[in-house]
C-alpha cells in the first residue's frame, strides 16, 4: 500500500488523534501565549556553563542533522529498484579510523572544556574582593532553613535530638543547641537573603532524607545529604528585583524585638527548588532567595540580630 493511500484511508483516525490535542489546547489558551524563557543566569561562576551548553547544542545539532540527512538521502537514493543491485563493501579500515578519531578529538575538547566550567562552579574565587558571607543551609521535609552565624562568625551547633518540628520557633524546629555559646547570637530564617555582588559560601546539611538545592537562575544544584556537609558558593550580579520584578503585596519584611514590622524590600525572590525526591511533599519544597542591595542586607541582619539578642521567639519568616 502506498503511503499516500494509507494516509488518506486512515484520515478519520488522524482526526481522532488530533481532536483531543486541540481540545486540550483549548483548556488553557492563555498558556500558549505565556512566554516560556530560559531563566536568566545571574551567576558569573556558571556563565561558562551556558556558553558550554550553547556550544554543545550547536555541535550536536550539526552532527545530528548530518546523520539524519545522510540517512534520508541513502534511503531514497539506494531504494529498491528493479535492476539495481547492492554493491558489496566489506569495510574500510582507514575510514573507520577517521570516524573513530574525529569524534574522539571532538569529545576530548568538550571533556576538557567541561573540566574548566566545573572548577569555576565548584571553587569560589581564591581572593574575593571582600570577605565571603557564610551561611548554613538546613534542609528538612519539606522546607529550607538558613542559619546566619551572627556577629561572632561561628555557627551554633545543631542537635537532631533537640529538633521539635511542631515548635513555632525555628531555632527549636532546626534543633539549635542553646547550650553552645556560639548559638547565642545565631539566627535561623526561612528565606535566604544575600546582597548582590558578594560571594556567599553555603554549607548544607539535611536532617532527614536527601534533598537537592536547585537554583535555576544560578545553574547550581547540590544535594543536601544527611550525615555529611556539602557546599555551594554563589554570587549574584543582579538583585532579584532586577530579574523577577517586585510585588508590593508580599514584601520581604522582618520584625524588631518589639514586634514592629520593617519592610526590607518589595522584590520578588528567586526560586529555590528541591530537585531530589524526598517524600510526599517534595513538590512543595520551594524556597525563596532574595538578592538585595548591600544596605538592605545589612538592615535585615541588624534587625534580626537585635531581635535574636533580645531573645524573642522567631517564626523565621519575615512575612
Amino acid at each position: 500500500m502506498s503511503l499516500k493511500r494509507l494516509l488518506s484511508r486512515t484520515l478519520p483516525l488522524w482526526a481522532m488523534l488530533t481532536a483531543p490535542t486541540l481540545a486540550w489546547a483549548q483548556t488553557a489558551p492563555e498558556t500558549f501565549g505565556r512566554p516560556t524563557t530560559v531563566p536568566v543566569n545571574v551567576f558569573d561562576g556558571s556563565a561558562s556553563t551556558d556558553t558550554m551548553f550553547n556550544f554543545v547544542t550547536w555541535l550536536t545539532l550539526s552532527v545530528l542533522v548530518a546523520v539524519l540527512i545522510t540517512l534520508v538521502i541513502f534511503a531514497v537514493k539506494y531504494r529498491y529498484q528493479p535492476g539495481r543491485r547492492s554493491i558489496f563493501i566489506h569495510g574500510n579500515n582507514a575510514l573507520e579510523s577517521v570516524w573513530t578519531l574525529i569524534p574522539t578529538i571532538i569529545l576530548a575538547v568538550i571533556a576538557v572544556l567541561s573540566q574548566d566550567s566545573w572548577s569555576q562552579m565548584k571553587n569560589p574565587p581564591v581572593n574575593p574582593p571582600d570577605e565571603p558571607i557564610r551561611v548554613r543551609i538546613i534542609a528538612m521535609q519539606f522546607k529550607w532553613f538558613f542559619q546566619y552565624p551572627g556577629p561572632d562568625g561561628e555557627f551554633g551547633r545543631l542537635d537532631v535530638t533537640r529538633m521539635n518540628i511542631k515548635s513555632s520557633d525555628v531555632k527549636e524546629q532546626a534543633g539549635l543547641d542553646p547550650t553552645d555559646p556560639a548559638s547565642a547570637d545565631d539566627i535561623i530564617v526561612g528565606q535566604l537573603v544575600v546582597p548582590k555582588d558578594r560571594t556567599v559560601i553555603a554549607d548544607m546539611i539535611s536532617i532527614d532524607v536527601i534533598h537537592s538545592f536547585f537554583l535555576p537562575n544560578f545553574r547550581i544544584k547540590q544535594d543536601a545529604v544527611p550525615g555529611m556537609t556539602t557546599r555551594v558558593w554563589l554570587r549574584s550580579n543582579k538583585t532579584s528585583a532586577e530579574v523577577v520584578g517586585t510585588n508590593p503585596n508580599q514584601p520581604l519584611a522582618t520584625y524588631t524585638a518589639d514586634g514592629e514590622e520593617v519592610v526590607i524590600t518589595d522584590a520578588k525572590p528567586f526560586d529555590i527548588v528541591c530537585a531530589e525526591l524526598c517524600g510526599n511533599g517534595h513538590y512543595t519544597m520551594r524556597g525563596l532567595l532574595y538578592v538585595v542591595s548591600e544596605q538592605q542586607y545589612n538592615q535585615f541582619l541588624e534587625i534580626e540580630y537585635a531581635a535574636a539578642a533580645a531573645g524573642g521567639e522567631d517564626d523565621g519568616y519575615g512575612y
Binding site: M52, V56, W118, Q120
Partner: peptide, 11 residues
Amino acid sequence: LFLAAMAIDVH
C-alpha cells in the same frame, strides 16, 4: 554529552 559535561549536568 550534555549530561557527561559536569557543569551542564548540574543544571
